[in-house]
């Protein structure tokens, strides 16, 4: 029987920690509808949390509420997560891998970015019209 769950979830959250929890709930609902394995769901949840915590914690220099766009999509055998925010330009791919930093001195944000890069098959960053667009994807096994 074909899986009739929608192939795309698109929503907007604000730059506050409560909304990160809402985004996680959406991701879990999407993953459940798609019947992803526990191993895939764990990775997607981890990556979503690491990216959004970094964005909410470090991307904004004002106290204004900002929108963060999130798109969850399945294309062929891959699940794609895309994040769009209007925070300061930040390319996570430019962060050196923490392997060269003593374990005790690793910054939590750096470890999060490293986990994202390692757990995903593909990570792309673009700065377009004053916005950060981060796209990651994982092959569904």
């Amino acid at each position: 029987m074909p899986n009739s769950a929608p192939d795309i979830y698109e929503f907007i959250i604000h730059n506050c920690t409560e909304d990160i929890s809402a985004a996680i709930e959406n991701l879990l609902r999407f993953s459940k509808e798609k019947k992803y394995s526990l191993a895939i769901i764990y990775k997607l949840r981890l990556v979503l949390e690491e990216i959004l915590v970094n964005t909410v914690s470090y991307s904004y220099k004002d106290d204004i509420i900002h929108d963060i766009g999130i798109k969850l999509q399945q294309v062929d055998g891959n699940v794609i997560l895309q994040f769009t925010d209007d925070g300061i330009a930040f390319n996570p791919l430019s962060i050196p891998d923490p392997k060269d930093v003593p374990l005790e001195e690793r910054k939590p944000g750096g470890v999060g970015v490293y986990l994202v890069k390692t757990l995903m098959d593909f990570v792309d960053y673009q700065r377009v019209d004053g916005k950060n667009i981060l796209t990651v994807s994982k092959k569904i096994t």
């Binding site: 981890l46 949390e49 915590v53």
Partner: peptide, 15 residues
């Protein structure tokens, strides 16, 4: 489930 936020707590407690 554990994320890097959880790992950081373990480092703090270990120290």
């Amino acid at each position: 489930f554990i994320s890097s936020a959880g790992l950081r707590v373990l480092i703090v407690i270990s120290k």
